[in-house]
Design a binder for these strands. Structure first.
Lengths: 204, 204
DNA sequence: GGCCAATTTGACTAAATGGTCAACTTCACT
DNA sequence: AGTGAAGTTGACCATTTAGTCAAATTGGCC
């Protein structure tokens, strides 16, 4: 029924890249259209506003990431390995991005969230939802690691929260510094938080 | 010589509040002028651009914070107490902000940094400089705590880095969630990272 | 009390931006 | 092959925005 088009996808891709490499505020509808090779009339055929495409881009992001996380956090992988895989993945992904764009771009959701949270409630809520999900992956790894006696974690949710905040903090610093260096030692920070080094040393 | 004015300060105050409560991108020169009660001609008499006022606002920020940090991190205060004071100060400050604006606003520098780092090098560099300074305060507390045998910290700079990233991550989450809750347990996260609970428990 | 540097003003321009729309095109389906 | 739903276009409008400037005002200081 009627003609088909991938203009909507092109618009979503364009907005993702523009917000990530710049910011939400610096991303105008004109530039989104230009980058997507789509006229403004078509933009408004698919979306109501910039916030609307941005919301779609978040959906897209999470759809793309979910299988990656699921495989990294597979229950058949030893819990601490899951975290190591996550850290490796983050480093490698950011390295690719840096090679592509000449820039370390960090976590697209965190940057966007902190920029728009006071103005765009819809985006804010969606981002929070995704963060909640991510924390659950971390929490499951912490819980399992504790159960296997690999770490001490009285409160896995709290520990996961600390790791998550640390992780996002480091990614944002890498973005601001435009430097992969903070991400190289990401996993050793995880271990520090989990007290893995300490436990071993004190036990010895 | 000539007339005097506090318009420059009013403009700096206005830009600080607008960026913090909104974002750099959502802050227009017109609104800055309106909020400061200053005409645009006067704005351009004192500043060259939005980035220019923003840079001045960073100077102002650091000038205001320096004595606060100096007192919190005074060498006569026991090292772990310095960190506790910092956490208390952050919580109380954000609580005041929330009462005033109805919003938790987090760390103004981190939000701004992650927003503009790909576009405004001057702001980016200034922000990084300030972060470097802040990390030094943390590092001195970690070093002293280690020296006094209160914690184990083989690499105080790395530990300070982890604490800093965690701290900024939590503040940003508090901003996004518009909720003080993540900041209530800030210090216990510090202790987790420093392995204070563990050490005591394992030693017992 | 007058000079002059510092500051203020408002009116102005050019460009960017968000948003609308009626007419046009395409193509899946019958 | 023709129809109608889905998608496209470019021209258009109203605002907002950054930035300029010559003329007016103020007040410290001699």
């Amino acid at each position: 029924m009627g003609r088909v088009s991938d203009a909507k996808e092109r618009l979503v891709d364009a907005v993702r890249e523009l917000i990530w490499t710049g910011s939400y505020g610096s991303t105008t509808i004109d530039r989104i259209c230009e980058k997507a090779g789509v006229k403004k009339g078509s933009f408004y055929y698919f979306f109501d506003s910039k916030a609307d495409v941005a919301a779609a881009s978040l959906e897209c992001e999470v759809e793309e990431q979910r299988p990656v996380w699921d495989s990294m956090f597979s229950p058949v992988v030893p819990p601490l390995d899951r975290l190591r895989r996550l850290c490796d993945h983050i480093y490698e992904h950011q390295a690719i991005i840096k090679a592509q764009h000449g820039r370390v771009l960090g976590c697209p959701l965190f940057a966007l969230g902190s920029e728009v949270c006071t103005q765009e409630n819809r985006l804010r809520d969606k981002i929070q939802e995704i963060f909640c999900l991510w924390r659950k992956y971390l929490e499951s790894a912490v819980t399992d690691a504790h159960a296997e006696g690999l770490i001490q974690a009285i409160n896995p949710a709290a520990t996961a929260q600390v790791i998550f905040a640390y992780n996002e903090g480091m990614m944002t610093q890498a973005r601001i510094q435009n430097d992969l260096e903070p991400l190289r030692s990401l996993y050793s920070g995880y271990l520090l938080i989990l007290g893995v080094g300490q436990t071993a040393r004190l036990a010895a």
